[in-house]
């Protein structure tokens, strides 16, 4: 774990998810992570945008290293959130992982067209879900080199 020791060990992750069950499952899965993850949750699209733009109660919100975004959300849809982030010069460099129940080809194509960084359908089994969250952590927070805040 030398590389890790030299790199960052604390990551800010924003989970945009309206289902408390999924939020809890994600928390459970991240508990076993090798790095420390500060998981912040926005339960709809409007809240997610307020968090990212540091509006209202979120004036002091940290800038996330990674966003886990569900597509089907109340108020502002995940697709709109994705589009808005990827069109904003200040936010577009944050990697976005679409994590959704939808396997529709239309959703997949549209997400990538809107510059999602990857698209993962939520596995239906508990083991599958735990594996996916572990995979996200290993890939995005350990293998991948993320942009540094000082250069942003």
């Amino acid at each position: 774990m030398e590389a890790l020791a030299m790199g960052r060990t604390v990551f800010e992750v924003l989970l945009v998810e309206d289902s408390p069950g999924d939020v809890r499952l994600t928390r459970e899965a991240f508990k076993e992570a090798k790095v420390h993850i500060n998981l912040r949750v926005a339960s709809d699209g409007t809240e997610a945008m307020a968090f990212l733009k540091r509006e209202g109660n979120y004036a002091k919100a940290p800038r996330p290293d990674l966003i886990l975004l569900d597509l089907n959300l109340p108020k502002k849809d995940g697709r709109e959130v994705l589009e808005e982030i990827k069109q904003s010069p200040a936010l577009m460099s944050i990697p976005i992982v679409i994590l959704t129940t939808s396997k529709s080809e239309e959703d997949i194509l549209r997400s990538y067209s809107l510059h999602a960084n990857c698209y993962i359908p939520k596995p239906v089994t508990l083991d599958g879900f735990l594996t996916v969250v572990k995979g996200i952590e290993e890939f995005w927070l350990s293998i991948v080199e993320l942009p540094r805040e000082t250069l942003r």
Partner: peptide
């Protein structure tokens, strides 16, 4: 595919 599977996934995941 979505609205029906979503609650079902919850039931399944938590019983598991």
């Amino acid at each position: 595919s979505h609205d029906l599977q979503e609650p079902l996934r919850m039931v399944a995941s938590y019983t598991q």
